[in-house]
């Protein structure tokens, strides 16, 4: 994956590029609006940029001023703004101006990667990429779960639950979200039907040795992680 980093802080840019490089992401770096414009109008645009990381405070102006020109490109890459904390107005302005997401400095590399994954996937067919956790593979297109090559057969609702948990693997999925996702309007879910679905799913995953743990968080929801 190749991205463009627009950031005037040299050391920050260097550290960020090194961190991305370790993840196989090539970040081209420019330090000003002028350089960014030049890069976008030049050969770089043709190489298929997957995303732009854009600092707001640049020596020659506001990073946002880049956005209108960017929208003119045939395949405009998604933009993640790098903002300062507490500048709520800045954040809102950025999203209004057409940025796809924002990240508050300082941030962890993992957080940046997660945002990058989300914005780049959004541009493709959302939800179509296969997901993997533990020893389990999930194919959203065919809605099939595999463990080490063999199909794991699951009832409809448990499959839906699994998909939801996998999409937010490592993070909590709130009960309300799960209930509205797996129950239609005609069902009247009682609070323990969700729990019984989850415990059945848990048992099946354990039987198949899928290597997935579903953690319950009382009053919050559930979280799936690799064991």
């Amino acid at each position: 994956m190749r991205i463009l980093l627009v950031e005037d802080e040299v050391e920050l840019a260097g550290a960020l590029r090194a961190a991305l490089d370790r993840r196989g992401i090539l970040a081209d770096w420019v330090g000003s609006l002028a350089e960014a414009r030049e890069a976008l109008s030049g050969p770089l645009a043709a190489t298929g940029l997957r995303a732009i990381l854009l600092d707001r405070r640049l020596p020659d102006g506001d990073g946002l001023s880049l956005l209108p020109a960017l929208r003119q490109l045939p395949e405009a890459p998604p933009v993640i703004m790098l903002t300062a904390r507490g500048q709520t107005a800045e954040r809102v302005e950025g999203l209004d101006a057409g940025a796809d997401d924002y990240l508050v400095k300082p941030f962890a590399v993992e957080e940046l990667l997660a945002r990058l994954r989300v914005v780049t996937r959004r541009r493709l067919d959302p939800g179509a990429e296969p997901m993997a956790l533990g020893r389990l593979q999930f194919d959203p297109v065919h809605r099939e779960a595999h463990v080490e090559g063999s199909v794991l057969a699951l009832p409809r609702r448990e499959l839906a639950l699994l998909e939801l948990l996998l999409r937010r693997a490592g993070r909590v999925v709130l009960r309300e979200a799960m209930e509205s996702f797996i129950f239609g309007f005609d069902d009247a879910p009682t609070s323990n039907t969700l729990d019984s679905h989850v415990s059945r799913l848990r048992r099946r995953l354990a039987e198949a040795e899928a290597g997935i743990a579903i953690h319950a968080l009382r009053g919050l929801g559930y979280m799936a992680r690799a064991e």
Binding site: L12, A15, L16, A19, R22, K105, P106, F107, A108, V109
Partner: peptide
């Protein structure tokens, strides 16, 4: 921010 990235 630099420290957080270098730690990686």
């Amino acid at each position: 921010a630099i420290l957080a990235l270098r730690l990686d």
